[in-house]
Amino acid sequence: MEHLIDIVLLGLLMITGFAIVRMKSLLAVAMLTSIYSLLSASLFVVLDAVDVALTEAAIGAGISTILMLATVALTRDEEKAPRHTPLLPLAVVTVTGAALIYGTLDMPHYGDPAAPVHQHAASAYLHDTPGEIGVPNVVTSVLASYRGYDTLGEVTVIFTAGAGVLALLGYRTRRRNIQGPGIRKLVVLRVIAKLFFPLILLFALYVLFHGDYGPGGGFQAGVIFATGFILYALAFGLGNAQRVIHHPLLRIMAAVGVLIYAAVGIEGILLGGKFLEYGVLADDPVTGQHLGIMLIELGVGITVAAVMLIIYYGFVSRQD
């Protein structure tokens, strides 16, 4: 049964991918990309990667699509045909693909429990997490503690993107609320947005603090939090949204999140441990781990939410 779903989803992904190559309308391509991302999120669920699925759905299908649509709205919608016949690209792609397929021939089989990936480090994570970290979600324990440094790098990447969009697109604060034409006038949309706005924020907090037990964590929570505000901005106009969270505050939030994360790490050094050693944060190492994971997830959430909104404001404020 699982194999069947797997094959169907992969087939749909292929169809979507080819459609993206063929389509000339960039609006349609952006929507298809969103579908592609959503399909891969579903595939991740089938492949047991629930955390990844949640992230892909929120980031790939959600925020990325919004950015693509915003860009398509600013550029021309139709794609011109390439000037050259794509013989060289075709050759490059064929060679690369052939090399990869050649490489698969010695790979362990798909789903094989005896494959090397499942033997070495991974089995230790699964075995030791309950005793050393004490959270049921092993993805969270690896993400936040065993490989917490990668995650610090990841927050820094997001922060870099925020700083980059700030440098490239800047921001304009709207004093008046410009009522553009289109969907902003819709009463139904406004009522629903008002109804759902607090619920989305609540859900973000749930995802943030439930990440130890189920799928979720700082990244997903931050993106969902930002999505709530994006919905608000869509329904009530950018000016009103900027009145709720204005740009200087976003800068501070983006910086503070990274600083919280790094501060937890440096606190480990100051208490006589290594960088990012959470065990020394409390008397009991497991409590220390809990505390550390909680704090860094909070930092991640704050930075991600702030950067998502900086990026969104940046793209939308170019719209006039």
Binding site: A254, V258, I266, I269, K274, F275
Partner: peptide, 22 residues
């Protein structure tokens, strides 16, 4: 601090980047 030098070598510029933005 000396024994943590390898980590600090990278972390100090990392921390100063958000401070700079502020």
């Amino acid at each position: 601090l000396l024994s943590n030098l390898p980590a600090l070598q990278v972390v100090i510029p990392l921390v100063s980047a958000p401070v700079c933005l502020l």
